[in-house]
Design a protein around this nucleic acid. Structure first.
Lengths: 205, 205
DNA sequence: GCGTTGCGAAACTTTGACGTATCGAAATTG
DNA sequence: CAATTTCGATACGTCAAAGTTTCGCAACGC
């Protein structure tokens, strides 16, 4: 074995000779998949042929990489690097408003709308997909809100007996509710109204 | 026309002679449809043949009554008479706990699990179905919570500046969140914890 | 340049559900 | 009993999508 062969084996991990797989095609396939999901297509209706057509790619090129639809979707979703929702600053109230506003904005960005659609519609079926999906998409957002609330408890800004889990469910659930069944009147001040009302409570003081 | 013919015409609305349609078969079809939906089958995967098989019925018997899948599902869902969630009593807090507890219980009853599954998964596609579905399943529950909150505002138990819509989203959304992504630790006191925390707020007093 | 492998396009087979038709049996009216 | 209609079962043609194969061309290593 020559030194060149050794170096090649280590670096390229045994390039098998022949035309290398197109990185561009792979990208296009993943993009097309996410686009179709973002447009509201459920996993059941999502067809390989639609993906191939949208990506301008032959079906062969897809099947050479993924053996079935679920594998492809798993990988596609994995590329949605959970952007740690915009980090926050000083007051709990402002942090929460920032996080909820980000959630609201994401409903309009087609790329992250995937997350909502999949999570709401196809979560139960496709359990294998869900495991990974929760990890990459749901958990970071959950953690961001949870951390903000916990920070408030630690700093004394919030009551020490606050149930962080319930607070998380309340805040995120409210945005979820409006996203799904709101009357399209998702005004910009909605996150503010939600946060302020949750923080101050409903009862007369 | 004899009197007998008249009476018969009025009572049976012109029975056309021949074997009458089996009420039992009709029931079995609707039941099978709801069962399959409750088991997590989406409308896309739901097949007429699966319904016929489950109901122990020929496909003919289905197609004789409904011309397509959507019509059948609409009628099936319509049989889920929205049970006006258990009426409430005196304090807003108790009323809300009652309503949220009812929501929690319904997640375990397969018959009403249909509502959640359909609402979350197939709401966007099938708009014609949604119109009727919202009316019979979503709206009554929404109204019950909203009324309870409004009652509290009117009685002075809640602050007069409470945003009823936001309160509704907060309460219902929290339960929705737990139902969908909760850690299975849906303890019986969850509704109590949610209501109490929303009522009292998070900030130190 | 030559062998190898990937490419997109298209043809192909298979699968599963749709919706219709047909069958003998059963239920009902007259 | 005769006519009519529904019953469950099954077979049928259609269609959409899955998944496989083939083809001519392109890209890479040697």
């Amino acid at each position: 074995m020559t030194m060149q062969e050794m170096a090649q084996g280590a670096a390229a991990a045994a390039r098998p000779a022949g035309r290398p797989r197109s990185e561009k095609a792979e990208k296009a396939i993943v993009e097309a998949t996410l686009d179709l999901i973002a447009e509201g297509m459920g996993l059941a209706e999502l067809s390989i042929e639609a993906i191939a057509s949208r990506a301008g790619v032959g079906k062969t090129t897809i099947y050479r990489r993924w053996s079935n639809k679920e594998d492809l979707v798993v990988d596609a979703l994995a590329t949605l690097k959970a952007p740690p929702p915009p980090v926050a600053g000083v007051s709990v109230r402002d942090d929460l408003v920032t996080l909820l506003s980000a959630m609201q904005d994401e409903k309009h960005q087609s790329r992250t709308r995937c997350i909502i659609n999949i999570a709401m519609s196809d979560a139960d079926r496709y359990p294998r997909l869900m495991e990974r999906f929760v990890k990459i998409a749901i958990e970071p957002r959950r953690k961001a809100v949870r951390d903000a609330v916990q920070r408030g408890v630690d700093s004394g800004e919030l009551r020490p007996d606050v149930d962080v889990d319930v607070a998380l469910a309340t805040l995120s659930g409210a945005m979820l509710w409006y996203t799904k069944w709101g009357n399209d009147d998702l005004t910009d001040d909605l996150p503010t109204r939600i946060v302020d009302q949750i923080l101050s409570g409903l009862t007369t003081r």
